[in-house]
Structure formats: structure tokens, C-alpha cells
């Protein structure tokens, strides 16, 4: 980054000073504005549009805000960028993370991987991002490509490519899977997902996120029709079963 004109401006939906589940320890969280995917269960539909972001910030401004919370981070906390889809604003995230890393702050990126393109033109920038990111928290919505398209409107091929890329390049990952009864919880798919994760290196944690319907109100407010209205949250038994199928308890790297 050289002059002011080159400074990428981040389009930001909101900040949360106390994140405790998206990455290790206590974390400052930036929720970026904008996402292409239209996941049917999305609980942040207000972050989809790239227009009308509630805030904009330079990486330096975001950094200045984040470090105010340093005293709460203890040994393992830090910053997490989430969204929306943070990778749509890769330049901003990279510069923000660079500033953090320069100051010894742990960085985590919570992403769906959807913007990933396995081509040199994209990878040049992505490698820079990787060099300043301590942890990738990657959502795999569905292992089956057709089902993934139905659920999100997009293919999962580049997302799985991204997972392999991270694995090949020694980057640490948490893999997350939202468990939606009747949609993402069938046994063959979970077994297939488990097998895929098994091929990856450096997976520190595999997490089941039980579907909840708390986002519905936001859809209603935005006037978008919500197609999962009749879907319930998974039962404790369904969650336990999915945890077993994905062998979540054997991924313990996050315990440090």
C-alpha cells in the first residue's frame, strides 16, 4: 500500500467487540457487507447487498478500533473477519490482517470460500491473504455439488478447491457445516463430507452448527420469502449423530 488513494475501503455491516465462538478465545469481529450466495437458511440476509453498507473503514481505522480490545484477548484471542462474504473484499482484509500481524495479533477469516478461483490471476492475491491469516474458518454448506447449488445458488467446486489449496499450503482450518434437517443431514452426504475432510491436512476443528430459525425475522423485514419456514432445528440426537459421522471429536488441534 502506498498512497491514500490506494487504500482499500472496507464496506462493513457491523462490528462485534465480543466474539467468542468464531476462532480461538475472545475476538474482535468485523462483519463485512456483501455476499453472492443466497443460502436458504442465511441468518444475515441484510449483509447480501454491496450497496448501502452501514459503515466504511480503512484497514488502519479498523485496526485502530480492534486494538482497543487487546486487553481482553489473553493468550489466544484476536480478530476475526466474517460477513457477508469477507473474501469479496480481499484487499481490505489482507491489509487489515497485515496490520494486525505486524502487531502480533492473531487473525482468523470466517468464509464460505465462494469467491475462490483456482487460477493464477486470483491466487496471487489469495496467497498474500494466506500469508497474514492464522486461521481459516471454512463453511462447507453441502458436499454434493447439485445440492449445494440448490441450497446456495452456487457450485461448491471452487470451495472444495480452496480447502485443498489451504491444506496443500499448510494453512490451519476449522471446517463448519450447518446442519439443516432434511437438507444437509442425510447420512450419505455426511459420510462423503467426512471422507473429504479426512483428505485435508491441518484441520484443527470440525464443527456442526445446528440450524436455527432466528434469521426469519430479518427475511420478513427485507420482504424476501423464506423457503425453510417449516424446517425445525435439529434434535440433540440428530446433532449427536452428525457429530459422530463427521468425527468432530477427533479434530482437536484447536485446543492448542
Amino acid at each position: 500500500m502506498t498512497g491514500c488513494n490506494d487504500t482499500p475501503l472496507g464496506l462493513i455491516n457491523s462490528i462485534e467487540s465480543f466474539g467468542s465462538v468464531d476462532g480461538p478465545g475472545v475476538r474482535f469481529m468485523l462483519f463485512m457487507q456483501g455476499c453472492r450466495m443466497r443460502c436458504r437458511y442465511c441468518h444475515n440476509p441484510e449483509t447480501w447487498s454491496m450497496d448501502n453498507a452501514p459503515m466504511t473503514m480503512t484497514p488502519q481505522e479498523a485496526f485502530d478500533k480492534a486494538v482497543r480490545y487487546r486487553s481482553y484477548w489473553g493468550k489466544n484471542g484476536g480478530v476475526t473477519v466474517s460477513g457477508g462474504e469477507a473474501m469479496l473484499q480481499m484487499e481490505f482484509v489482507t491489509e487489515f490482517f497485515r496490520l494486525c500481524r505486524q502487531d502480533g495479533i492473531n487473525t482468523a477469516l470466517d468464509t464460505s470460500g465462494q469467491p475462490f478461483v483456482n487460477e493464477e490471476g486470483f491466487l496471487e492475491g489469495f496467497r498474500k491473504l494466506c500469508s497474514v491469516t492464522d486461521l481459516f474458518i471454512l463453511d462447507i454448506k453441502h458436499i454434493d455439488d447439485e445440492e449445494h447449488k440448490k441450497l446456495t445458488g452456487f457450485s461448491n467446486r471452487n470451495i472444495l478447491d480452496m480447502a485443498r489449496f489451504l491444506s496443500d499450503n499448510g494453512k490451519h482450518m476449522w471446517i463448519r457445516h450447518v446442519l439443516v434437517p432434511g437438507i444437509t443431514d442425510d447420512e450419505p452426504s455426511l459420510r462423503k463430507l467426512d471422507a473429504f475432510i479426512g483428505t485435508l491436512a491441518n484441520v484443527d476443528r470440525v464443527e456442526i452448527l445446528p440450524y436455527h430459525s432466528l434469521g426469519i425475522a430479518k427475511w420478513d423485514k427485507l420482504g424476501i420469502s423464506y423457503s425453510l419456514r417449516d424446517v425445525r432445528s435439529p434434535s440433540a440426537e440428530q446433532i449427536r449423530n452428525a457429530n459422530e459421522l463427521l468425527h468432530t471429536s477427533s479434530y482437536n488441534g484447536y485446543k492448542g
Binding site: 457491523s14 462490528i15 462485534e16 467487540s17 465480543f18 466474539g19 475472545v26 474482535f28 482497543r68 480490545y69 481482553y72
Partner: peptide, 10 residues
């Protein structure tokens, strides 16, 4: 409080 617990504590 629009920025979470720690902003409030600060």
C-alpha cells in the same frame, strides 16, 4: 450498546 459487550465495558 451497538458494538457488543466489550465496547460497553470499555
Amino acid at each position: 450498546e451497538k458494538n457488543g459487550l466489550l465496547a460497553s465495558l470499555n
